[in-house]
Design a binder for these strands. Structure first.
Lengths: 155, 155
DNA sequence: TATTGTTATACTCTATAACTATA
DNA sequence: TATAGTTATAGAGTATAACAATA
């Protein structure tokens, strides 16, 4: 009886977590659309922002996606002015993809949105509740990582 | 100084929350793929499971997607044996979409996966920490709902 | 011989617009 | 005249396979 009770509470909490996943996803999609981006294209910008100019091969590995797919994403980002393709200085097979000024501006905008969202979600939370939530979140994220790793190993 | 400190902690916590979003999304995509489903098609099954047999119009409204899109999703689900199209008893323009046995089996499987995931994420959590997390999650979800509603109103 | 990125082909999800059959 | 669902067309993300240029 004790176990059953816990199980149903855990299930209900997972439901709410999944609802939050959906809401966060919608919010992110909308914010990116306002900047003229999709999640996949933003992911490319994110990698370039952190790694600096990169070859398409590097991007393909970072996004865990086929090189062909990167060709398409970079095509789109070039067409909309977020990145440029340049010759690689030493390897003539490769191209270097770099962020433009427009992309830098968008990244700044995204940072602001991120801070605003953090403020919206946690800004009025009592400090004690906030840190309890953060602790639980760490726990849950760790379990999820382990679970995925196990699933990937067993396949 | 106090404010700045809080802001950076809030940002870091949002980062971890977004990481969890990504992990949960991957897990869900993989589970569904194992059943031969995509998230969109599973969403259709979910609605049919809760509402019973429905017209494509009803499905389009439920998923907030165009009728044309539903045609494609139902085509795929029919081809893979998850649903059937039948004549509507009274309105000859409409079709009724119903779950098959295979879909019922998959829904059962998904329920099991859901319970297992809840157990993985929360099963070894001390009761007090679990309920603190659940409380924080409620808070965060409420703020997110409000934020999205405001964003939609202001557009 | 191996690697980088492309063309060719195909599938899924999504949208708008025009059209058919029915209400 | 309005509604249900289709065909036609298009764009984005994804994949595999074959191929060119270069290492």
């Amino acid at each position: 009886m004790n176990v059953l009770h816990d199980t149903s509470k855990a299930s209900a909490t997972l439901d709410r977590l999944l609802e939050l996943v959906v809401l966060l996803g919608e919010d992110m999609t909308q914010s990116l659309a306002r900047e003229g981006l999709t999640t996949s294209r933003a992911h490319v910008l994110w990698v370039l922002h952190h790694e600096g100019p990169a070859t398409q091969r590097v991007l393909a590995d970072a996004l865990r996606v086929t090189p062909r797919n990167i060709t398409g994403l970079v095509d789109g980002l070039v067409a909309t002015g977020f990145v440029t393709r340049e010759r690689h200085p030493t390897d003539r097979r490769a191209t270097l993809v770099s962020l433009t000024e427009r992309a830098a501006a968008s990244m700044g905008q995204m940072h602001s949105s991120h801070r605003e969202l953090a403020e919206l979600l946690f800004g009025d939370m009592p400090a004690r509740r906030f840190s309890a939530f953060a602790t639980g979140l760490d726990h849950v994220t760790d379990r999820m990582r382990e679970g995925l790793r196990a699933a990937q190993a067993g396949r």
